[in-house]
Amino acid sequence: MNLTIGFIAFFISIVIPGILFRRFYFYGEFSKQFNTKDPVLHSIFFSIVPGIIVQILCLIIYHFSLGFESSFLDVFVIFRDVTSDGSNGTQEATKTFIDNDIIRFFIYSLATFIFSSFIGFVCSRFIRLQKWDKKFKLFRFKNQWYYIFSGEVLNMKKFEEAHKISFKGNKGVDQNTLMTYADILVSVSEQNDRKELYTGYVADYDLKSDDITQLDKVYLIDTHRYKKKNKVLDESGNEIRKEEIDEEGNPTKSRNRIKVPGDIFILKVEWY
């Protein structure tokens, strides 16, 4: 029974605030980093550290705003007694807490849940506003594809330094990317190793739920595909090779550019 009460106290005090912090910290394009399909032990493990930090902050705020009738030492004594098997007896502070302060504890826990959600919401927005995720890997979100497709990868330190010494002399400063144009090579048939090239503007994308570092789907607009031109044979069955330069002096193209009908073209990404 004591172990059950101890687990409930631990879950309410540490795990739930940590989960709420992570839920509101990861937002928008980064929300898949908080996955509800994660194993329970995985979610608990990654919620302990933020949960402890949030709990310490709440205790400090509570102490300086309303004041404790008990010392900080009593808090640890109560938590130890609740999580122990009771073989060492129960301290007076724990008995007083159970008899008189259990309702206050649940009200305090509710306030902690709200505070942890607010802190998670504010922290992630503040990091994005200060561009710390682009300056420091410690604050970078795991959704690498967002940084690539949005063009923010160009504003990261290594890429800025690389542009300064590259042939693109106008680079090396903050750049705004409206859309990303992608060339995607698709395997049509594995038997004859047939492939087709699709190009278009990346409107959106999905990540795999079990591994957010991998793409699941890519949504293209204004999509075209490139089809290899059919061989032209003479009467003897030999291929007639066309001139590599056309009449205007431009190189001839070996593939036809064909518009894909429809407003949105969805490509399913398969990883091997």
Rank of each mutant, 00 (worst) to 15 (best):
I53L: 14
F21W: 03
F97K: 04
S116M: 07
L154H: 12
D204M: 04
T180S: 09
K231A: 15
F76Y: 11
F34T: 00
P39R: 00
Q175V: 12
E244C: 05
W132S: 05
N192F: 07
I258C: 03
V40P: 06
Q91S: 15
D211L: 04
V232N: 07
K268Q: 13
F126E: 01
K157G: 10
P17Q: 00
Q91H: 14
N170K: 12
F115N: 02
S47Y: 01
T213V: 01
E239A: 14
Y146L: 06
K37L: 14
G172P: 09
L3Q: 05
K171F: 15
V202K: 07
T112G: 07
D74A: 13
I44P: 02
Y146R: 04
K242T: 13
K227A: 12
S84G: 10
I103A: 13
V188A: 11
G151A: 08
V54Y: 03
R255P: 02
A9T: 12
L207A: 07
M1H: 07
Q144F: 10
S209P: 01
E243Y: 03
R194Q: 13
F72L: 09
Q214R: 12
Y146N: 10
R22C: 04
F68H: 12
P261C: 06
I8Y: 03
I264T: 15
K134Q: 14
Y219E: 09
F45D: 00
R80I: 04
F76V: 13
F121R: 02
P50W: 01
K227Q: 14
G249K: 11
Y205I: 03
L59S: 06
N250Y: 13
S254Q: 13
R257N: 03
G237P: 13
D81V: 05
